[in-house]
């Protein structure tokens, strides 16, 4: 009985995560659960931080320009994703500011770590 329940739970979980992926990737999806949508934004931000960090390190971009470009791109991607791709009413989530700052600091820290590591590994040889 318990194993049956457990396997049912497991299949439910995979189903929900599948449907979240589907919802996140298809435009104009309905988001009755606010937390679900904010979670999607949170994890998207983390992925974006790491990807941009890798790119900035490989190029390499340096200085304030790199930092500012990250902040602008990060905010712009989320803004476009929220208001153009999903056409979500931002007031439902406490305004655009709430959405913009969702997971920003964590993503920024992740970006700085990957940027620094890639930059050190690929371009820091001469100076280290």
């Amino acid at each position: 009985m318990t194993t049956k329940n457990r396997s049912l739970d497991g299949s439910n979980k995979t189903k929900t995560s599948e449907s979240i992926w589907k919802k996140a990737l298809s435009s104009d999806s309905e988001w009755p659960d606010k937390d679900e949508f904010l979670d999607v934004i949170y994890w998207m931000r983390q992925a974006l931080g790491i990807i941009l960090g890798l790119c900035w390190g490989i190029l390499p971009l340096k200085g304030l320009f790199g930092l500012l470009l990250f902040v602008v791109l990060n905010a712009a991607v989320i803004y476009i994703y929220v208001s153009n791709f999903h056409n979500v009413d931002e007031e439902e989530f406490g305004g655009m500011w709430e959405i913009t700052k969702e997971g920003f600091m964590t993503s920024f820290a992740g970006f700085l770590v990957t940027w620094t590591i890639m930059y050190t590994g690929l371009h820091g040889n001469s100076s280290l």
């Binding site: 900035w56 390190g57 390499p60 971009l61 340096k62 200085g63 304030l64 790199g66 930092l67 940027w115 620094t116 590591i117 930059y119 050190t120 371009h123 820091g124 100076s127 280290l128």
Partner: peptide, 9 residues
């Protein structure tokens, strides 16, 4: 020990 090189000041 210098563990990494920061790409910014």
């Amino acid at each position: 020990r210098v563990v990494a090189k920061l790409p910014f000041h």
